[in-house]
Design a protein around this nucleic acid. Structure first.
Lengths: 139, 139
DNA sequence: AAAATCTGAAACCACATGGTTGACAATCAA
DNA sequence: TTGATTGTCAACCATGTGGTTTCAGATTTT
């Protein structure tokens, strides 16, 4: 059941941090028009016309942006009559937020640790100035 | 000083939620290879070769990905000798995380409010099924 | 029934993105 | 000096993205 190809796929998957879900969410958030749409939907449902109106682009363009948000599961569409009502879907956003927050916290801990380490190294250098401590002259 | 063009630009800016910084950060996070690079840099500094090694792509391709992370201010590069040492830069990440978290919290509050509202509507609809309620609060 | 409205789909275009290869510069090690 | 390591740059290519216009379908309104 596990041939070479799929084994390579698994490795690739692991090392490459593949997550099509995160791909789609972050890509969706990377465009100002789509963030504007999310902002429009922050408080109330809205149909496509209402969403497209403030955007300075054609209707089909705005519609495509909404589709991108839908693919990322950031927006859900409910068709009632000829009106397509959109609302925010929180789950995907929460996952992206968790990914970001976990990394941020990890790096924050590291920064604290590194700062302490650097302080320690500087203090030690004042005592025994032997090794020139190469990381001093960065930007 | 404020002609029509720049006034339109300002409006566009406001309604479109423009933030090239967020554009760059989210776009940088939207590719699995770049998230993998960030993961490699989670604990230690690394030079480009070390970053490129686990990625299944050519060296220049990996180098481009690092450049994207640099443009987004997610990674900082320090050149020592022929080695380009990269480390994570926390500030841009923190801003993106704050943006996401603020929206997530806002929507979370709204979901609670909406859930209550929907329950209320369902109960009311069982009593008097009249209008399907298109959008009560139109701007 | 007829007209207006809301939306989707398709065709098209300009440009960005993600990948390759090959040549080249700089640095370190022998 | 020779050679290996590290990384950049330019050219090129395939595909994706973001925008337009045009046409057609479904739905509401008159």
């Amino acid at each position: 059941m596990v041939d070479n190809q799929s084994a390579a796929d698994i490795l690739n998957h692991m090392v490459l941090d593949r997550s099509p879900k995160l791909d789609r969410v972050f890509h969706a958030l990377a465009h100002p028009a789509r963030r504007a749409i999310l902002r429009s939907l922050a408080d109330r449902e809205a149909n496509l016309s209402e969403l497209a109106a403030p955007l300075k682009m054609s209707f089909p363009a705005a519609s495509k942006h909404v589709k991108v948000l839908e693919r990322a599961r950031l927006v859900h569409r409910r068709i009632v009559g000829r009106s397509h009502l959109c609302r925010v879907e929180g789950k995907a956003l929460e996952e992206a937020s968790q990914w970001l927050e976990s990394y941020r916290r990890h790096w924050e801990r590291n920064f604290l640790r590194l700062d302490a380490l650097l302080d320690q190294m500087k203090a030690q250098e004042r005592d025994t100035p032997q090794t020139p401590l190469k990381s001093e002259g960065d930007s």
